[in-house]
Nucleic acid binder design. Structure first.
Length: 476
RNA sequence: GGUGGCGUAGCCAAGUGGUAAGGCACGGGCCUGCAAAGCUCUUAUUCGUCGGUUCGAUUCCGACCGCCACCUCCA
């Protein structure tokens, strides 16, 4: 079955057919780096990461571009408050953004273009629009002439009259039309600025994405993603600029990620109610946060609260226990094994459901359902005496690992660290467990409990199971 | 005022024109020296309300109620 994506442009589910089957191009609107990123930013970045991982899982090559807006009013203002230069502030927060993303297990994009490094491309694009009569210059600023683009409003489903009626903001009287927006801002004294044919200035917000997307991905890109707040005016303006300049489609599939809420209202920087991603990461493991962020479909709002994070923690525990129990069956599994046992059937079922869910507009919530169904089946086979074979368990393990890796909720790297000290450490723990076992056999509970309690203090938890005593590190 | 979305068990959350995935919590059971953890079973005659279409609607249509978002920088 093919993939379907909900396209904001048509407001319906469409078959996904990449322009170039050899390489899918994806552009994701990144953050304005005047501060650390918050959980809402993280949600969008994470969805983009999973889109990319799933496309790769499906066998596509993907080129992902995610920009950083490193010059704008907020950066300038914040830098002034802090007494640093805009450049310094943007650099620091840009680095912090990469650090936070990495901690969330987000794989870096293929290109992370910065606005200030693409000034010439933006100037070229603006000049093209001026030459086509789609832009005009007033006192060193350049404005886009919206009435030159007949399709303006097609992404956000807005009519010109609606836009005028809704204007809640002071209109710049110099503009020909209130809807016109600036592509180049004339520099005010003391502001960072670049030379241009229209004098010293800096780029407007929308022009940077048009210029950078086209530079790194070509005039037409497959998927353009971002938060739903960007649909208007940001993405609408990107379309207007790009399509008038090139005469061709700018992005074929527009994806918009719904807001993360907190206590029922939108989490946003202007609302002052945001949770920083790095703070969340200090309190919860990566996988837990990822699980939470994908527990609802990306087009539905999701509410951030401690209870939800705790639920994700519980769900992850269930998954990891199952994976731990299966680990001993891990081994090479040849593809296209025939299915004989009930578990093998369940594995096949899970893979089909997972693919179907992800194929249908990246339905991560449904995909998680498929994974956990298999977890239940595995646990049952593992506990109750059954006809299952080692091969079936190996296949289940393989299937779970593969799908969990697409979602990024199971990190094999951290599970298989191979430091030199690790082996010795494991042997020491093993020795303690042996001593404890001897004590238990002599019913010396004082000694056995002491070992258990002291290990717990060291963050090592032991469990007495039917097959013997096992131990593991507690997360955080 | 314009545009769009949402309302499914105690909570979170999928989903379908033919009778409701999954997770958390609760309760019962298994396991255990105790403990912790784990496993297991059970939990919605019902999908905001009222109408309509249909053999049949939670799913389609209409009205209403409630909540939210965008129209201004924000992912």
């Amino acid at each position: 079955m093919g993939m379907k994506i909900y396209n904001s442009l048509s407001r319906q589910l469409e078959d996904f057919v990449p322009l170039n089957p050899e390489q899918v191009s994806v552009y994701s609107c990144g953050p304005t780096v005047y501060d650390y990123i918050h959980m809402g930013n993280a949600r969008t970045a994470l969805i983009t990461d999973i889109i990319r991982r799933y496309l790769v899982y499906k066998g596509y090559n993907v080129k992902l571009v995610q920009n950083l807006t490193d010059i704008d009013d907020k950066i300038i203002n914040r830098a002034a408050e802090l007494g640093v230069t805009a450049k310094q502030l943007a650099h620091q927060n840009g680095e912090a953004f990469f650090e936070d993303s990495q901690r969330l297990g987000i794989q870096p994009a293929d290109v992370h273009p910065k606005a200030t490094e693409h000034i010439p491309e933006m100037i070229d694009l603006i000049q093209t629009l001026i030459d086509k009569g789609a832009a005009y210059v007033i006192e060193g600023s350049v404005y886009y002439r919206v009435n030159q683009f007949a399709e303006y409003g097609k992404l956000s489903n807005r009519k010109p009259e609606d836009l005028l009626a809704g204007a809640r903001v002071e209109v710049d009287e110099r503009k020909e039309d209130p809807r016109d927006f600036d592509m180049w801002k004339a520099a005010k004294p003391g502001e960072p600025s670049w030379e241009s044919p229209w004098g010293q200035g800096r780029p407007g917000w929308h022009i940077e994405c048009s210029a950078m997307a086209m530079k790194h991905l070509g005039e037409t890109i497959d998927i353009h993603a971002g938060g739903e707040d960007l649909q208007f005016p940001h993405h609408e303006n990107e379309i207007a600029q790009s399509e008038l300049a090139t005469g061709t489609t700018f992005a074929r599939y527009w994806m918009h990620v719904a807001f993360l809420k907190i206590d029922g209202t939108r989490m946003g920087k202007s609302e002052q109610n945001f949770i920083l991603l790095r703070d969340a990461l200090d309190n919860y493991p990566t996988e837990v946060i990822r699980h939470f962020l994908i527990s609802a479909h990306y087009r539905h709002p999701l509410d951030y609260n401690q209870e939800s994070l705790r639920k994700s923690e519980g769900a992850l525990r269930r998954l990891n226990n199952c994976l731990d129990a299966l680990k001993k069956y891990a081994g090479p599994v040849e593809a296209s094994e025939t299915t004989h046992t009930p578990l093998q059937h369940a594995v096949q079922e899970m893979r089909a459901q997972f693919t179907q869910a992800m194929d249908t507009d990246f339905n991560t919530a449904q995909a998680l359902g498929a994974i956990f169904s298999l977890v239940g089946a595995v646990n049952k086979s593992l506990t109750a005496p059954s006809e299952e074979t080692d091969l079936a368990f190996a296949q289940a393990y393989q299937a779970l690992i593969e799908t969990c890796q697409v979602l990024g909720i199971y990190d094999t790297d951290t599970q298989n660290s191979d430091d030199d000290n690790i082996e010795q450490r494991d042997q020491l723990v093993q020795l303690l467990l042996e001593i404890r076992q001897d004590a238990r056999e002599q019913k010396d509970w004082e000694t056995s409990d002491k070992i258990r309690d002291r290990l717990k203090e060291l963050n090592i938890e032991i469990k007495d199971t039917r097959e013997g005593t096992t131990w593991k590190f507690l997360t955080k």
